[in-house]
């Protein structure tokens, strides 16, 4: 139930984000969702794509430093407080959320949160036990 995210190291300078995106565009890779973390000197571009391994090798060939990370895709009711059940399940299990962001597409009536936990396996068990729906790769990406 874990989803692989591709992270790309970028310097925080004009044109660097564009270069990474162009490399992926030229290879016909569609970015399903992206999230950009930045400091004043560097940034980390995190993307969800259909073929993370393939994208990784294309980016590496083009000289980028990249990494694959396990993420959880939690289905969240699209209403006030919808995220709370997810967060409380994680805090009860003493799992820290390193970062999270919303997936770009809704799945039926629900939104999807991409979660990077410090302990992905514990997080997975805690969320499953709390009745949170976690989307598989196929469910998340195939009909998006």
């Amino acid at each position: 139930m874990k989803i692989q995210q591709l992270s790309i190291f970028l310097e925080n300078k004009p044109g660097h984000l564009e270069a990474a995106c162009k490399t992926m565009a030229d290879a016909g890779i569609n970015l399903m969702t992206l999230n950009l973390a930045d400091t004043c000197e560097f940034g980390i571009l995190r993307v969800i794509v259909k073929d993370p391994e393939g994208a990784k090798s294309i980016l590496e060939k083009n000289g980028f430093t990249v990494k694959l990370t396990d993420m959880l895709a939690a289905s969240v009711a699209d209403k006030p407080g919808g995220l709370l059940s997810v967060l409380s399940a994680l805090s009860k299990a003493d799992v820290n959320v390193d970062y999270m962001y919303a997936f770009a597409y809704r799945k039926g009536d629900a939104a999807v949160m991409m979660i990077r936990a410090d302990h992905p396996d514990i997080a997975l068990n805690a969320l499953t036990a709390a009745g949170v729906t976690l989307l598989s790769r196929k469910e998340l990406l195939e009909d998006a």
Partner: peptide, 15 residues
């Protein structure tokens, strides 16, 4: 230069 070994998706680890 950041290498595949030193790179992390977490800002905190990079810092």
């Amino acid at each position: 230069e950041v290498t595949a070994e030193t790179f992390s998706d977490r800002i905190s680890e990079m810092e």
